[in-house]
Design a protein around this nucleic acid. Structure first.
Lengths: 193, 193, 193, 193
DNA sequence: TTGTAAACGAGACGGTACGTCCTGTCTTTTA
DNA sequence: TAAAAGACAGGACGTACCGTCTCGTTTACAA
């Protein structure tokens, strides 16, 4: 086993340049077309410097994306749960509709065949965001706005499942209006009263 | 442009052997690890024979999978829409929980960077199934069991989104029981009455 | 172990192009500066095609050189052994004084750290030539022109040792005249009678 | 140009440790397999410390070898030139037959593609030794034991050429007995009287 | 029954990207 | 304030697959 590199000696300039180049290239040329070598070159960095700190192109891009979006933020709480989750879910929908959504698709694709990356994706991205959503929904449950017999984690899946479904299967365009409508269906049910 | 091959001269033995080998290898070794060359070898076939009839490994595996599951079937109609879609969605959940689900993940992954494959995936797999589901849901709408102001295509997304969310993002295990519960939430809403 | 490639299916055009490019580049740029990739590119060939047929750059260059010089020829026999070996040894001296000598130095250098190459070098180049020389010297022994108690293989070493000494250690320039003088010293001895 | 380091500040402990490690590692693992980094590590020294004082691995090993064998000594002079050069040449033959010979081969190999190293090799090793041999042979010439019309430098080549020929081309094992026989052939000639 | 044309098994090919290794320089930290 | 430790830019290595391209060899229909 090669000795683990010492993070304290890490060159911050290179680090930044790599993340910037990764984002720049993947959004411009498409995730799949970008190679580790191209990122290294664009960042003015040796290929080994990338492999010293990340195990793969995907890991670099994931960090670049996480770095761009910042840590998971709290879901807004105005007291009106329907309005709050509509706004927040629409923001996600909008983001996934840009170039970043395309990069994101590449990342999720790579994760299908790379368990370590999948784990990293969940831990660094999905779980923190799911947790923030659950906090907001728990508040709503306590406020008597949501059923008490539905796990909030399941509600999160009901909200985001259809968004990722469209993103990854491409059956329909990602559309904030549709996202808003879905919140209504979700809260009130699609069954006839 | 090379002359299009004549499908009538296609060797049926090879065709079958290729589909069988593709399924066998991808379920055994994992989608990503399998190469076109390995499929050709396992099928006792030249690599060119595969490329003559399919554009990529993914296309072969997609046909193998479609061949295995048969054409989209009608969703059962006992008159009780809740029971019917529960049963049918659970069947899907179960299937995606087996080895085939893993193969399926590989296929969807490849489709992220291959628009032709994505199109093929939608046309040959998703759209026919969505159509059958919509037919069943339309019946339920006419029977006054579902709201009339919700597009049935959206209901399908609400049903399957969370299933593919779990399959592709791996946040939780695929679970038929959870699928059943979700039908309830979907029909009755998660909001407090 | 990967299956050994079938030599009968070898592409003659590529084969030739590789040997030509190897010689061209090594004489032009210097043996050490040439990479396998550069040879491949100059030959219009994939790198793998080189590695399919040769284990290393050195092996390619060795074949190119052997191909250029042809199989070991018989040493001339006019009856005058002194004259014959002078002429032949001068020819070798001259050849090693050209660009090819420089390439040859690179080859011998690589052989110091690569036993397989060293073996190849001996078997395909040195031993056949040593054998031809021994044949000529044997004739001279039988003709009463050389001592019978000196192994002819040793005489070959005495002739060529100094040539390679100069080539590889660079103490003096390779010089056909000096080579001629050495034949005299060798036959008549440097000791005072 | 970076300021030349001041040799007086050179740390003697490190210097020794580097030479010792270089010899230890090259004899144990083979010249080619040893890297500058490995020498630095084994010597408990930073890589830069090596590059500050030597231009390459070869230069370090050359100094280590020169340091081990000491400066070129006078060739023995008992009055019997045949006996003297036999003994001295056998000593060289024996040395080159040990592990050191293998290291030496690596050094000569590197010199083929590195003119500066080749120059260093000649100046620090070969020329001094050639000079000592010439002194002894000059004495023999004056004593009427050697022909006066043969440059002594050429006699040295005739003596050592075959030894390096075997060392570098590997056609036969290095053998002190053979070396002794060659002195006879050299002095008395291989031609029939 | 033979001729011919297409598909076939086999596998070499040109090419791209990979992840590793080493070089020689530069930077940080420690003593 | 020197030097160990080691990160860095650069670049070659040898491997793995890709999708294309020859090869002869069946196979199946036409003459």
């Amino acid at each position: 086993m090669p000795p683990a590199p010492n993070p304290e000696l890490r060159n911050q300039r290179s680090h930044r340049a790599i993340l910037d180049a990764a984002l720049e290239l993947t959004t411009r040329d498409g995730y799949t077309k970008v190679t580790v070598e191209a990122i290294a070159q664009a960042a003015g960095v040796g290929k080994q410097t990338i492999y010293r700190w990340w195990p793969s192109k995907a890991a670099v891009v994931l960090e670049a994306l996480n770095d761009l979006t910042g840590p998971a933020g709290r879901v807004p709480d105005t007291g009106d749960v329907a309005a709050d989750i509509t706004v927040a879910a629409q923001a996600v929908t909008h983001m996934l509709g840009t170039d970043l959504g395309t990069v994101w698709r590449g990342l999720v694709a790579d994760a299908q065949g790379d368990p370590r990356l999948a784990e990293d994706l969940r831990e660094s991205f999905f779980e923190p965001r799911i947790a923030r959503w659950q906090e907001r929904l728990d508040t709503a449950v306590r406020a008597g706005q949501l059923r008490t017999d539905v796990p909030t984690r399941t509600i999160v899946e009901l909200l985001f499942g259809p968004i990722y479904y469209r993103l990854l299967l491409g059956t329909d365009r990602l559309d904030p209006e549709n996202t808003a409508a879905r919140v209504d269906y979700l809260l009130n049910g699609v069954g006839q009263r």
